[in-house]
Design a protein around this nucleic acid. Structure first.
Lengths: 248, 248
DNA sequence: TATCCCACTTGATCTGCATCAAGGCAGGCG
DNA sequence: CGCCTGCCTTGATGCAGATCAAGTGGGATA
């Protein structure tokens, strides 16, 4: 289904994030060298906006560490998150001038950017880069469709359970986990960001997290650290039939 | 942004739908011939299921005429549409064995299918096919993200207005319209299908359509034929700031 | 012409989540 | 130490949309 998902985590890359699944899993030495020429790093602090919707965007990029989000905002201020970028995720569209969404760092963040123009030229000469991008984009589309089911039809409780499951799994995948024991990880989002993700208000998020805790579905240490004693129970709460295959 | 969107409508294709934007906008004669070898047509009646989620899917396809939908269903029967396929849209993922969603014909439908295996092989040899698919997939991802904003944050009234605007525009685009006058078209979906699209119940859909009619935002002839006297008014009701650029 | 069916409409009531409002708690800084 | 600020929790109330239920209208069939 999707091949290199976990082969190149940010850990593997050290400070050579061009080896991310994003771009160059199949590049040869000359191509890697060419990518080196056009890449540069950018760091952001938690909360910082990377680019505003409508702004010129002359790079494409891959997340090295930290978390970024894509959000849309309506005139009256209603906000909906439409993308959640974890390490190794790719952002930016070859051929597009301007960003269609706000891109924000929700934690401290390092991105590996490629200048767009030369990247596009290289894509034409190097078909497997385009092929990788196609695979990744299709994965993202699948994730978006799961997300649509969540937004359109799930209850608040199910939404929270789904979000916890999604983040827990991605976190586990990122840590190359073969390790057993209860799933344990930090929620990298504020209650407000979770609300934007789920199409809820932050009060409802808070209440439903409390409810899941009260019912023993999850345990909390502090406000962010989650322990999932029974993943199957959580998935059941999430109303999830897919066995995680598609959730990115 | 996206190149051949309207250059190859189903009208242009006659019975050569391989000229759809989907696949072969840039193919030469030899490549077109190769595509001819692996293509075949399938027809469906309104309401017929083309493929169930989880079934083997050994083709990829392009819609020639009619409308198909992708939907997800939860165990308890809640349904959410996650894809709406109009003429010239593409469905199926190279490299995937099984369909992740139910695919259904909501009107009488003709699809132009390509056998998956040889299609994949051809894709490897013919990079610009992959490039076209990447462009199209990115367009679909953008559409999915608009859709997420709709599902997560819009009111029922805004959802209906948005849907009418989306279908009206796509219909206009399909008819190569230079013509002026009020936008006029058929809603190709039942109230129930609209509800599945919008994350509402069919009763709410019906009520809100009535409300928009009462308020003069739209006019109806029969139950399906819509006249939009003032597109800007409709877009305002839809809560839409994007000027339609991204709505596919 | 009657009758059946299906897509749709409309009404009455219920409820899950939003909204409005008031704290709590931890970390930073004077 | 006390105060502030940001993030979170919890309570009270309201409302948009779901649910339950009845009825309409038009097209197909006989």
């Amino acid at each position: 289904m999707d091949l290199n998902h976990n082969h190149f985590s940010s850990q593997d890359c050290g400070d050579c994030p061009i080896r991310h699944r994003a771009v160059c899993a199949r590049c040869d030495a000359r191509e890697l060298d060419e990518l080196e020429q056009i890449k540069y790093y950018r760091s952001f602090e938690a909360g910082q906006t990377i680019i505003w919707s409508g702004d010129r965007m002359d790079f494409v990029a891959s997340v090295v560490t930290g978390i970024a989000t894509l959000t849309q905002t309506m005139e009256d201020g209603r906000r909906q998150m439409v993308g959640l970028l974890l390490p190794s995720d790719f952002v930016g569209r070859p051929g597009r001038e301007r960003a269609p969404y706000d891109v924000t760092a929700t934690t401290d963040l390092v991105m590996c950017c490629f200048r767009k123009k030369p990247f596009e030229e290289m894509m034409i000469r190097t078909p497997h880069i385009g092929q990788r991008l196609l695979e990744m984009t299709l994965d993202e589309l699948d994730a978006a469709r799961e997300w649509m089911l969540l937004l359109g039809r799930k209850t608040a409780r199910e939404k929270i359970a789904s979000l916890v499951a999604i983040i827990g799994r991605r976190d586990a995948a990122l840590h190359l986990s073969g390790k057993k024991g209860p799933l344990t990880f930090d929620l990298p989002l504020t209650r407000e960001a979770m609300a934007d993700y789920l199409g809820l208000t932050l009060e409802t998020v808070s209440r439903q997290i409390s409810a899941l805790k009260r019912d023993g579905v999850i345990e909390l240490e502090g406000k962010r650290h989650v322990i999932v004693p029974d993943l199957d129970r959580l998935l059941e709460e999430a109303g999830d039939d897919t066995d995680g295959g598609l959730l990115v």
